[in-house]
């Protein structure tokens, strides 16, 4: 999928590829021209990506080539042991987790499991979890607590799945239960919003001591399309709703909803997944080091204070 605002970037990139091919085939030295073009591409990418609107960033966050959890697992973590099932009804493929190693840290990793192909997304329900997915997450959080391992969660979902069986099996209860338990889990929790942070389905694994967001990730109380169809009575107004809802990492950092932005390479994570994973790894390790040094009472008191302070009102 090519995004409208990426056309020029893609043009320059294909010109670079052409020159490289030409230089290789004809043994020509085009290194000056190539370097010049690469510089132009970089400057252009930076300029375009700095100026993206909230709606455009949402398209980047939903980009089909954006790295998903499985990519991060293979690029950053070693020794991943997936643990299946909620011990009740099913193993939800939309939300997965297990043991994982990140540098010196042995952790429990839990995240939404978006796919990249149609087959993957059919199996994983586009990362939209059912109650059994949230209950599996909770089971793994409690396991992490019992074994004294820090928790890392990756958020990337359009939302919790809105379906008949999801309601029947208590989607609301499953999310509520996670929020309540996560408030007092006695190990550090670091959360990264890597792509789409879709409402209750996102926060259902998102009560972190530290909440990070990639530059082009979004996090919203409702999809801009849904908001527009209610408040504008027309989903066509979604770009305005995206702006009004303040869903970008930059806005949410200013609002104090998230703690830090993890910088994506210019041109977005889908252009350079390796560099993206490297930045994520550094950020996670830095925060794990700080959080793991804290005593449990301090950790819990700070978490309580962090969430107590959320929101703005007059009194």
């Amino acid at each position: 999928m090519d995004l409208e605002f990426e056309k020029t970037i893609i043009d320059i990139e294909s010109k670079i590829a052409e020159l490289q091919k030409l230089s290789a085939e004809n043994k020509l030295d085009l290194s000056v021209q190539i370097r010049e073009l690469k510089k132009r591409a970089q400057a252009y990418k930076e300029r375009v990506y700095d100026g993206l609107t909230a709606w455009q960033r949402l398209q980047v966050a939903r980009h089909p080539q954006r790295p998903v959890l499985q990519d991060f697992i293979s690029m950053m973590f070693s020794g991943f042991v997936e643990l299946h099932g909620d011990r009740g009804i099913a193993d939800d493929r939309a939300l997965i987790g297990g043991f994982a190693t990140l540098g010196d840290y042995r952790v429990v990793l839990v995240g939404h499991n978006k796919g990249k192909t149609a087959e993957e997304n059919a199996e994983r329900n586009f990362g939209m979890a059912k109650p059994e997915g949230y209950r599996k997450a909770l089971r793994l959080f409690k396991l992490a607590e019992k074994w004294n391992l820090p928790i890392i969660t990756f958020i990337d979902t359009a939302g919790a799945y809105p379906g008949l069986e999801a309601e029947e099996r208590g989607q609301a209860e499953a999310i509520a239960h996670n929020l309540t338990e996560m408030a007092r889990i006695q190990v550090p929790i670091v959360t990264l919003v890597s792509g789409e942070g879709g409402s209750g389905g996102a926060i259902g694994i998102g009560v972190g001591d530290v909440v990070l967001m990639l530059t082009n990730a979004v996090y919203s109380v409702i999809s801009p399309e849904g908001c527009a169809s209610i408040l504008w009575r027309d989903a066509e107004h979604a770009p305005e709703a995206a702006e009004a809802l303040k869903i970008t990492a930059k806005s949410l950092l200013e609002m104090g909803v998230i703690d830090e932005i993890v910088t994506e390479p210019a041109g977005g994570a889908h252009r350079d997944p390796t560099q993206t994973a490297e930045e994520v790894r550094k950020a996670l390790q830095k925060h794990l080091a700080v959080l793991c040094a804290k005593s449990v009472p301090v950790l819990l008191e700070e978490r309580f204070r962090k969430y107590s302070g959320m929101g703005r009102f007059d009194s």
Partner: peptide
């Protein structure tokens, strides 16, 4: 449900209120 006009501050009230309930449980 959520108050859309307060964006993510509204979503965060879910975690905030549940943190209060969690302490009562303790």
């Amino acid at each position: 449900g959520a108050r859309m006009q307060e964006g993510m501050y509204s979503l965060m009230q879910m975690a905030k209120t549940c943190a209060g309930i969690a302490r009562l449980n303790e």
